[in-house]
Design a protein around this nucleic acid. Structure first.
Lengths: 348, 348
DNA sequence: TTTTCCTACGAAAACGTTTTCGACAAAGCT
DNA sequence: AGCTTTGTCGAAAACGTTTTCGTAGGAAAA
């Protein structure tokens, strides 16, 4: 009932294990006739190479690690889907691990992957993560690392990201185009590059448009969940600064904020316009539907895997690998939470 | 720069590889003194056992396969989270694969896992899947299989599920309690055990309450997505049978249906009450919020892993393993899409 | 003829463990 | 003293591949 081995094929054909092995991989130094014979026998005996032995011999596992903050999350689960599909096409296996946005956990997960001897690592770092020694360690073990979405500029490796500054700029610009004069921003953690860049984009849009940028209009979110959206919305209302538009770092927080505004009887978009980020499915079905920035999660996963794969193959050929940074396009999706002035102009 | 091996530790201590190996695992036939010496040296040299060699020698990989229809899905991604966390605690790695609800793909994925020599498989089968020869094959290779959520009664293995009949019954009963007289059902695929059971629960509740069960009040969904919800809602409105309540197989479909009803100006719950299934986050933030059945996805993942693990350990000890079926509790979450008569009674 | 050059195959080492089976003391027992 | 027991250790096989390096024989070239 155990697996057929090269040994058994060899025995059944009166050949050596060597020849059988080479025949199966069509080595040039084995005759066409025996190649056929061996391949037939292999199929007949339902031969499957023993992965453990192959791994040991070749010192590679055809396995990569994928580290993300949280899997129950539309963005990341889409990334995972993209990575898994692309990996499967190329005979690779992926080990998915979560950090729960915790730095210590992230270090443990990386250590685990090193122990398990993966061929490479794909990672979106935790918001908490500032120093990246654990990633330097990976690189020092000669393992390629590719970062996506949540990156650290301090690590020298290939990256797959979006242009958060541009996206933040366009989100804010859209609010301005809608006629908003006093635009707030719900930003994410100070240590997250995403949050920093979206914030910078927000600021840039305000300054370019001659609107005054006011730091007290910037509200800080750390956990980036629904409840925090409600809380920050409450805080904003208490301040009562006449805010008429908000650019919010993530759709989930935006939905929380909208829920609070609705509960307090504040009309969206008449009294306050809102732009979210991520284009989660959620944002299209709530009332009013949420204007947001679409971010290609699925393709980001695919591309992240493929850049890692290309580094892996280059390494095997001893070719020089140089790191590349791929920037994926974003797009603003206009919905009901912002009333576009353009529509208004057309109807005139 | 390469990993330290037992060889190197042995050399540095003037011991044999055998003794070093045994010392690290605290064999009784090696003296306490050398055990200490070896362990110190191992720590000093940062020794990590070579997984490939261990796998080859022990013929196990400490890896399990997890097969699901789709990962970008709140229910399944929560299951994945539970499985991964529990696996990590026990030193196991999990390979997540998707079938996209396609039978042929499912067979391929299973084959892939067998090739990769996982120690066991966790699976929620595709709705399409009717015959389970591919799972019998897994079992014939002496690999344990545990099914969860989407199971087939024809396979003899451990299972982790909910009581869909009971859940469907309670969902429908709730509509009846709310005063609905003419209750429709949006059901899932005919081949899915979940759908069958929820349908049976629906039917049972109607019959027990003296309401007439009418097959033409049952609408069939195959893809179970948002658009299908809208379509079936349209169809229901065209039929115009005076339906005043619907029990819908899945929250996502329910949200689609609600969107259509709202678009057509039909009031929920005044004109039509709706109960969904799954308690996705989505259902709590739409307007009106959706009454639904809560289903423990995360713990289902944890329990599924642990039953697989216990089968694995029993097998290693050559103990007899008998299959168990764990049934997890569900709970109805009452929200705005059904106006509870109880509330009404209280206010009188 | 001898020499060179292919063609087709195999022996053996290596990858790094784990485990079986001895071996050889020293210590305990008649 | 002879015998068995106990406590430590190691040699070697095994897991199933892949790859290096031969080698034998025949064909082609000299």
């Amino acid at each position: 009932m155990s697996r057929t081995t090269l040994q058994q094929i060899a025995l059944s054909l009166n050949l050596s294990v060597t020849t059988v092995s080479k025949a199966l991989r069509s080595y040039p130094d084995v005759s066409e006739k025996t190649i056929q014979k061996v391949k037939e026998a292999a199929k007949l005996l339902n031969y499957k190479p023993n992965t453990f032995a192959v791994n040991l011999r070749t010192q590679e596992s055809k396995t990569i690690g994928l580290v993300i903050p949280e899997i129950v999350h539309q963005f990341f689960s889409s990334v995972v889907k993209g990575v898994i599909e692309e990996a499967e096409k190329n005979g690779y296996v992926v080990i998915v691990l979560q950090t729960s946005q915790d730095f210590e956990t992230e270090k443990k997960r990386i250590e685990f992957l090193i122990d398990k001897q993966v061929d490479g690592i794909l990672i979106a770092i935790a918001d908490q993560t500032v120093d990246c020694f654990h990633l330097y360690e990976v690189q020092s073990m000669d393992l390629p690392v590719v970062m996506f979405d949540k990156i650290s500029k301090s690590v020298s490796c290939s990256k797959v990201i979006i242009d958060d500054i541009k996206a933040g700029y366009e989100a804010t610009k859209h609010l301005i185009d809608c006629g908003c004069k006093n635009i707030a921003h719900f930003r994410g953690p100070l240590t997250s590059q995403n949050s920093i860049d979206r914030y910078l984009g927000y600021k840039k849009a305000l300054e370019e448009s001659g609107l005054t940028f006011d730091e007290s209009n910037v509200y800080h979110c750390s956990k980036m969940n629904f409840d925090e959206g409600r809380e920050q919305a409450q805080k904003l209302l208490q301040h009562n600064r006449g805010v008429d538009g908000i650019f919010i770092n993530t759709d989930m927080v935006a939905v929380g904020a909208m829920t609070e505004f609705k509960a307090q009887g504040i009309k969206i978009p008449e009294e306050i316009s809102i732009v979210g980020f991520g284009n989660w499915f959620l944002s299209s079905v709530i009332t009013p539907s949420l204007t947001t920035i679409d971010q290609p999660s699925y393709t980001m996963g695919k591309i992240a895997f493929n850049t890692l794969l290309s580094e892996l193959t280059k390494r095997k050929k001893n070719e020089h690998v140089e790191h590349e940074t791929v920037i994926l396009p974003t797009e603003i999706i206009e919905r009901e939470s912002t009333s576009s002035r353009k529509k208004f102009d057309i109807s005139l």
